[in-house]
Simulated assay, not measured.
Amino acid sequence: MLGVILLNIVESLFSLARFEGVPFLLIRPKDISGPEIYSGDFDLLIKPESLDCFLLCVMEVCSKNSFNFCIRRRKKEKINLNIYLGSGEEFIDFDLWTELDVKDSGFPRGTFISWSDLESSGLIINDSGRFFLDNNFSAMYYMSHLYSKRKNINDHSVKRRIDYYRNLDGLSSFSHSLLWNVNNKSMQKANREMSSLGLFSHSRIV
């Protein structure tokens, strides 16, 4: 029963945001069903100028369903959102990003990839108001994410996602070779590949 309620929250929020014309996408795959909904968070990339509208959708869905929510913002490009159920012991965790961060000692601090650059490069797919990252870029960015977050590649959830990306259509031979030999060197190669596409921007760190 609880899983159904949580599922309805996510589906209602995503449906309302799409109805309101908010461009957003899942940065990494996550099942919106079963036990997957309880583990980890939903990482969303939202077009920066549409962030306020997305948060208004959160308020509307929570108000209609008598849910509490909490918003925390510690840096300009990321908002953490928790939507609580009942007593507050159960909640759904979202990380709302307005850009894709890239952490690599070979690049300046504050390196990121903007929605506008992804869009102009054809790496954001718009399927009747549902937005997705291009499969090949999505795989490269997951490799970058593993490196940035120093993820344990032997972790079960990491292995599952690597398998997911290995089986995507449209992968270049270069991406495919990296995904079948995942280590720090191949993760850094993924960053160099994205850099070669001219996608990286740099924030001014104060």
Rank of each mutant, 00 (worst) to 15 (best):
S105M: 05
L179E: 11
M140E: 08
F14A: 01
E11F: 10
R150G: 09
Y84H: 08
P35A: 09
R74I: 14
N183E: 09
L7R: 14
F200A: 06
S116C: 06
S87F: 07
F67Q: 02
H145D: 08
T98I: 13
I5Y: 11
D43P: 07
V61G: 00
S121E: 04
S12K: 03
S186M: 14
K159L: 14
D101Y: 09
F131W: 13
F131L: 00
C70V: 10
P48G: 09
E193G: 02
S33D: 12
K185W: 12
S121F: 05
E60V: 14
I46P: 04
S196T: 09
N135I: 01
M194F: 04
I153E: 02
R73T: 14
G106C: 10
E193N: 11
G198Y: 13
K30H: 11
L171F: 09
K47W: 10
G122F: 05
L168H: 07
I92R: 10
P29E: 05
M140G: 02
L55V: 08
K30N: 04
E36D: 10
F94K: 08
N183T: 09
V4R: 09
M187V: 09
W97P: 00
F94V: 05
I205L: 11
N181K: 15
D93L: 07
R73E: 15
L179R: 09
E60A: 11
L25F: 12
D43I: 14
D104C: 14
S148Y: 10
S201H: 08
I162R: 09
L25C: 01
F14M: 02
I9Q: 02
L100D: 00
W115R: 00
I162K: 05
S196V: 07
E77A: 12
F132G: 01
W180A: 02
S195G: 15
F42P: 04
D163V: 12
F24S: 00
S177K: 14
K149H: 15
E77L: 07
Y165F: 15
R109A: 04
L85S: 03
S203T: 00
V158N: 05
C57K: 00
S105W: 08
G129M: 07
Y164P: 01
N191M: 14
L178E: 06
N80G: 13
L96P: 00
S116R: 01
N82I: 10
M140K: 15
V58I: 11
P48T: 10
D93T: 03
F54H: 10
N181F: 14
R109H: 07
S144M: 07
D31C: 03
L118M: 08
K75W: 13
G34S: 02
F69G: 06
F200K: 07
G122C: 03
P23A: 00
